[in-house]
């Protein structure tokens, strides 16, 4: 099948994850993975991002497919249920707003900058080597640590489900995918 330029976006996703090990401020670039799918679904009413441009999905497809790192078994029924998908989206939202709240506290000077990446919302990994001081506000760095935590956590979850189930199992419960599908469903009703 003919390859398009967007079939190589997995390189961007991989680069993003690697850059976060060297300078945490690169984490801000991850916002593109939030805004682009939302804008596509809001403006065009499609899941064009998931369908074409999602580098993370491509990365899982590559690792689980060509690299054979997946058992390629069916995902459990409960993981594709609406309860789980919407529940995970809600949980993700709550954790995201908690991260924004922490950023606000650092911005307002109430809380010190924490140079840690929180994996799976629980494990605080020291990540000071990726912070080299900055001329910009500490809150900007705090958001980067928080946002990179979100991105790394979701990648780890995606990798685990890739190994156990089909390569792109993450797509089944990806909060952005669920959200953009909801937007598309709502837009479809408008027409």
């Amino acid at each position: 099948m003919k390859k398009h330029w967007y079939d190589y976006l997995w390189i961007a996703s991989l680069t993003y994850l690697i850059l976060g090990f060297f300078n945490i401020l690169f984490a801000w670039l991850g916002l593109l993975c939030f805004f682009i799918p939302l804008l596509i679904s809001l403006i065009k009413g499609t899941k064009g991002y998931c369908n074409r441009y999602c580098g993370r999905g491509q990365l899982f497809a590559l690792l689980g497919g060509r690299f054979g790192l997946s058992r390629k078994k069916d995902i459990p029924r409960w993981m594709k249920s609406k309860w789980f998908r919407y529940g995970f989206l809600t949980f993700f939202f709550v954790m995201f707003f908690q991260m924004l709240w922490n950023t606000y506290l650092v911005f307002s000077g109430v809380q010190d900058l924490r140079q840690v990446v929180t994996l799976l919302w629980t494990f605080k990994l020291p990540w000071h080597w990726a912070y080299h001081g900055t001329w910009i506000h500490l809150g900007v760095a705090q958001f980067a640590f928080g946002f990179y935590s979100v991105m790394l956590t979701s990648t780890v979850l995606g990798l685990v489900t890739m190994v156990f189930f089909k390569p792109r199992s993450w797509c089944v419960y990806c909060p952005m995918g669920t959200m953009t599908q909801l937007i598309c469903k709502a837009k479809k009703k408008d027409v």
């Binding site: 998931c50 497809a61 998908r85 598309c184």
Partner: peptide
């Protein structure tokens, strides 16, 4: 009903 429209 269960399709997530991922496009795989």
């Amino acid at each position: 009903n269960d399709c997530v429209a991922c496009g795989c």
